[in-house]
Design a protein around this nucleic acid. Structure first.
Lengths: 333, 333
DNA sequence: CTGAAAGCGCTTACAG
DNA sequence: CTGAAAGCGCTTACAG
């Protein structure tokens, strides 16, 4: 299919190519009648500006790189939600998302560098941020634009802009909700200490319990990995203790589902006998009987902040708040 | 960050830009010593070819468009697997995936057209193919390159190339596996008739049951939507019938999980009292107690075929085979 | 095997 | 308000 060029439109409208370019990029510079004539030609010839030519000239490709994560042991159940939100937010600014794969950590950085140097992307959205994530410093030093979904934890400052969801606030919402439904011994299912995300959410649980005068000693359990079996194992451990909990805040929907499974196995009814909450409002939450109360991340808000922060090259930091989606797993006890 | 250009490399190596370009794109044309000198300069100056300039000249962007799906009621639990495989396959040919959003059906076609006309992408990978999907014909008529993941069902021929997984073969694997573990009344949980995917898998169930001399009458249930609750409802209906089944092949992991829930609710043990299988090997399959036997789509193979078919512009059709992943839900009865 | 030149389709100062 | 010209960084026939 052959497409019209600026030159052809100019010839058709009997103006210079410059004027057609202005009609597109700075219409206020044209006299109304000229603009109308040019627009008519554009319409008639079904003209679409060649983005490569534009990018070559302006050295901006309007493409944002995003590394598609692949974890062997970790499932990303809300990735489709995130990607859709990110894509929609990018499109609202005339941009698009370019997907790529790269090894994790610093080993993947040459891939980022290459994509940027070859002008395939203007910058990057980072996610799956890890403790002392090496990517941020690396990109900053190379002066490659980026924004991070997730903080580099336990650092007062971190290189570059970031957007994140307040995990401690999430735990607080969960604990208070369980408290309001009558729970007084609320446990926490966590991940290994290496996860900053886990520490943040754990802190929220601990401080909120303290505020409400609830016990925490012996009620935090570390799971080895984010699996159903680990959630069940940790729950079994808690239930077998001398003073079992009546509420469980789990760090993820998967751990929470593991907890639900263990309850069911012991003929306990989630919601009635024990309140359970998860994190992320993944599709799982709706699938589990009797529905999992969970913390939803504001995906559209996250995506919008990521894109605007990246494209304005601001060094902003946005800490957003999750919301609690209440389902059967925390029916009043 | 300022990057070196071809011109600068040429000056440094004391050759013409043409020779540097050849060193990159047709190294065999250079004398070995010239090539070595040019490569040394490329290395030294850390030269990376500007892709926009290249694309402008060759009018190929090496980018493949993929529309990120968003369903209100349908969860796509293996999308991260699919996207990662697709991305990796594209990169093996020096290409990348560009993500975009578009309204479903024919209303979204102007978006596809625009992306192609503005040279943001060379072509498209279509997924979530629907019965009489209007996109295929539309793209073909516009001569926009594409390949479809999924057949336009119930048509002997369809516009363009496609790759798909044989759903009937999947059902056959599931039925035979259940048969081998002692099941003799195998039911099928389906979707509404509008889904070609559902009809394909249903047919496989029906014909394999016939081959094995198993009954099918009254054993196929249509679920209204792909939810946990619908799977449970259909299972309840089957279990309440005069002749309840001893095996269930579900059209999706979600329906299968619904079935498992209903079994558990009735104090039946999946695997022991009834065999249950799903489709897709989503993360759910590993999460459900006691593990869901399910049909895995060969993601890497799918992705590789999609990319090579699209980039070679062939009109190939590839029907791939799923594999059965056996877990506790079909433990011998 | 190597080089000079044209051109891909835009945008951007700069004149008029 | 409009236009002629240069140039973004490559590749591609075409000579030599």
């Amino acid at each position: 299919m052959v497409v019209a060029t600026l030159k052809q439109v100019a010839a058709h409208a009997e103006v210079s190519v410059q004027t057609v370019s202005n009609a597109l990029n700075a219409p206020h510079r044209l006299r109304p009648d000229t603009l109308a004539r040019v627009n008519a030609s554009i319409e008639l010839l079904n003209y679409r500006p060649n983005r490569n030519a534009r990018s070559l000239r302006t050295s901006a490709v309007e493409l944002i790189g995003y590394c598609v994560p692949s974890w062997p042991n970790q499932t990303h159940l809300v990735m489709d939600q995130f990607l859709h939100a990110l894509c929609a937010a990018a499109e609202r600014t005339g941009r698009h998302i370019l997907l790529f794969t790269a090894p994790p950590g610093v080993e993947g950085m040459p891939v980022y560098d290459d994509l940027h140097a070859r002008r395939l992307v203007d910058g990057f959205v980072l996610s799956q941020t890890e403790t002392r994530d090496p990517r941020h410093g690396w990109l900053k030093e190379k002066k490659i634009p980026f924004v991070s979904f997730g903080r580099v934890w336990k650092e007062s400052t971190q290189p570059g802009a970031w957007v994140d969801v307040d995990g401690a606030a999430g735990s607080a919402l969960a604990v208070r909700h369980l408290y309001e439904t009558g729970r007084r011994r609320i446990a926490f299912l966590s991940w290994p200490k290496t996860s900053g995300l886990a520490e943040d959410r754990l802190d929220g649980w601990r401080s909120t319990c303290a505020e409400l005068g609830l016990p925490t000693a012996g009620l935090a359990v570390r799971c080895r990995e984010d699996t159903f079996a680990e959630g069940a194992r940790a729950t079994a451990h808690l239930l077998d203790s001398p003073e079992p909990p009546d509420g469980i805040v789990a760090l993820s929907d998967i751990l929470a589902l593991g907890a639900l499974r263990e309850l069911t196995r012991r003929n306990l009814t989630p919601g009635r006998d024990l309140g359970v909450t998860g994190f992320d409002d993944s599709p799982l939450a709706d699938v589990a009987a009797p529905g999992l109360t969970t913390l939803r991340q504001p995906m559209d808000e996250i995506a919008t902040h990521l894109i605007t922060t990246l494209t304005t090259q601001s060094h902003a930091a946005h800490l957003l708040h999750p919301t609690l989606v209440v389902r059967g797993s925390t029916a009043p006890g």
